[in-house]
Lab assay of single mutants.
Amino acid sequence: LSEQDFVSVFGITRGQFAALPGWKQLQMKKEKGLF
C-alpha cells in the first residue's frame, strides 16, 4: 500500500499505526479484511 492508500484504508498514518499495540494493529487489519 502507498502512504495515501494506507491512510484512506486505516484513517491514520503508518507512523501512528506502528505506534499502536500489536493486538490493536491485528484488530484493525481484520476489520479491514487485510489479514
Rank of each mutant, 00 (worst) to 15 (best):
Q16M: 07
G11Q: 03
F17P: 01
G22H: 14
W23Y: 08
V7W: 06
G15T: 12
P21G: 06
P21R: 02
P21K: 04
E3L: 06
E31I: 04
W23D: 13
L26K: 14
Q4I: 15
W23M: 11
L20N: 08
L1G: 12
E3M: 03
T13I: 03
F10T: 05
P21T: 03
V7R: 10
T13E: 11
L26G: 10
F17G: 05
F10E: 07
Q4H: 07
L1Y: 01
S8G: 12
L20V: 01
G11K: 04
T13N: 07
Q25M: 03
F10A: 05
S2L: 10
L20K: 01
I12W: 00
T13V: 02
E31S: 04
R14W: 05
G33V: 02
F6R: 03
G22C: 04
K32Q: 10
K32D: 01
F10C: 06
A18K: 15
K32M: 14
F35E: 14
E3Q: 08
T13L: 01
L34M: 13
K32N: 14
F6G: 00
G22P: 14
L1W: 11
Q25C: 00
W23E: 14
G22F: 10
V7L: 14
Q16Y: 07
L26E: 15
F35I: 15
G33M: 05
L1M: 09
P21C: 04
L26V: 14
V9S: 03
Q4G: 13
G15Y: 02
G11W: 00
T13F: 05
W23G: 08
K29I: 08
K29E: 15
L1N: 11
L20C: 00
A19N: 12
R14N: 02
A19E: 13
L1R: 10
E3K: 04
A18V: 08
A19Y: 04
Q25S: 01
K24C: 06
L26H: 10
F17M: 08
F35R: 14
Q25G: 02
G11V: 02
E3D: 14
S2A: 03
E31H: 02
A18G: 11
G11P: 01
S2M: 02
G33K: 06
T13A: 05
I12P: 01
G22T: 13
Q16K: 12
W23C: 08
V9H: 13
K29P: 03
T13W: 01
L34K: 13
I12Y: 06
A19Q: 05
S8E: 14
L20S: 06
W23K: 12
G33L: 06
Q4S: 13
Q4A: 12
K29G: 07
G22M: 11
I12L: 11
K30P: 04
L20T: 04
A19D: 12
V7C: 08
F6A: 00
F6T: 09
F10R: 03
A18R: 09
L34T: 15
S8Y: 00
W23H: 11
M28V: 00
Q27T: 03
A18D: 15
L1C: 07
V7G: 06
F17A: 05
K24F: 05
Q27I: 14
K24D: 10
L34D: 15
L34S: 15
F35A: 06
F6C: 14
K24Y: 01
A18Y: 12
L26W: 10
L20E: 05
K30M: 14
Q25R: 09
V9D: 04
S8M: 13
K30S: 11
G11C: 03
Q27K: 12
E3I: 09
D5Y: 01
G33S: 11
G15K: 15
V9F: 04
R14V: 07
K24G: 03
R14T: 08
E31D: 13
K32P: 10
V9R: 09
G22D: 11
G22S: 11
S8V: 10
L26F: 09
P21W: 02
M28G: 00
P21S: 08
G15D: 13
G15A: 15
K24S: 06
V7K: 05
S2P: 02
G15N: 12
K29W: 12
M28R: 00
I12M: 14
S2Q: 04
G33N: 05
F10S: 05
M28E: 00
E31L: 04
G15E: 15
L20Q: 05
Q25P: 00
I12T: 02
I12E: 02
A18W: 05
L26P: 00
S8W: 04
E3P: 07
K29L: 07
Q4C: 00
L26C: 02
K24W: 01
Q27A: 10
S8R: 13
K32L: 12
R14L: 06
G15H: 13
K29Y: 08
Q25N: 04
F10W: 07
